[in-house]
Write a protein that binds this DNA or RNA. Sequence first.
DNA 1: TATGTTAGTGAATAGTGAATCACTATTCTG
DNA 2: CAGAATAGTGATTCACTATTCACTAACATA
Lengths: 200, 200
Amino acid sequence: MRAQKIETEARQEQIIEAALELIGADGVNALSIAGIAERVGIVPSALYRHFKSKDDVLDAVLELIRTRLLANVTQVREETPDALPRLKSLLMRQVRMLSENRAIPHVVFSDGIYTGHPERKAKVATIITSYLCKIQKIVEEGIQDGSIRRDVVPTTASVMFLGMILPAAILRNVSEGGFDVIAHAQNAWPAFVRCIATNT
Amino acid sequence: MRAQKIETEARQEQIIEAALELIGADGVNALSIAGIAERVGIVPSALYRHFKSKDDVLDAVLELIRTRLLANVTQVREETPDALPRLKSLLMRQVRMLSENRAIPHVVFSDGIYTGHPERKAKVATIITSYLCKIQKIVEEGIQDGSIRRDVVPTTASVMFLGMILPAAILRNVSEGGFDVIAHAQNAWPAFVRCIATNT
DNA sequence: TATGTTAGTGAATAGTGAATCACTATTCTG
DNA sequence: CAGAATAGTGATTCACTATTCACTAACATA
């Protein structure tokens, strides 16, 4: 049975989405053109009408993740004005996002994407660091307005913030969902507050 | 030129060591029998005299990492009696270990090892959780003797402890060493203390 | 309705890397 | 020193996957 003809842009989205889901399920290594094609409902070779190569697909996946990740931060900025509530809201958002989108840690932390692709590795580095920079900025503003201790190093705080999310994501992955990421975030938050907030 | 003949046990160690280094450099995906063989100085097929399969090599690598990782914890237990100094010492040890041994995060957090190998994934899960359990125990003892706050959830604390190390390791990997893991640990430690220690 | 363009198909190709095997060189031992 | 056991070699097989290509069906538009 022949697949329905669909315009390239729509197919591209389907393909990226399918890739994202497959990566979330089995990791970057298990991602194959055949697998994507099957999920989309076309034949493997048809995929090449919409992407030049598998690498192209991976680049697109990475780009999508980048925008989703950073969008979260900017949305939080608009939502709340103060540093601590911003961070808390961001934490909960990210954790929820990871719950729904298992692919993200796979893509960002698996070497499968950048073996033999220094440019892509650099891109991952850029994504992470620009994410951290935004957090750092929130922390700096918190120091300015006195809600965050002066002796907190913004860089360190941003990495520790990531430290509430990342190990949890990996634990969830490795234990097949046997780790409650959201509960962890809720427990970790007050502790994190103690470690950066000024004593009241 | 023919390679020197060496007894299996010694070769096995060489092979595991080579695998570890290759993984550290380029990740699990880039690991090939040919690569290992070249590094060891034998021909690819010779490797099969010492290991049944590539999977066997990976299992051995994983086992080595497991022992190294857990050995660190038990050594720290012998070294110092109190919870907080123990944790600090453990932190610095782990960070130093990661600096010297780039393969560890690759092996533990890359999906390359467990795609299609549920048993191995389970083993990774076991390694991480048993590591966390040991930390948890230290925390619990700290709560007992009053050096750690009563309202700290031991599980959460252990995951956050990992959160000082893990993101740092990944940042270092991704940025090609452009991130000072040891400096980060030194900055993060006092903050972590604030978040779990009783106020003095 | 005819025609050009776009998307889908299936078979063929080619590269890669793990694993096997028959054979050879080396080392150990009686 | 003979010969058994052990380790190394190179050619080869095998499976797996990305990619190409000639062809076909569907759609848009003139």
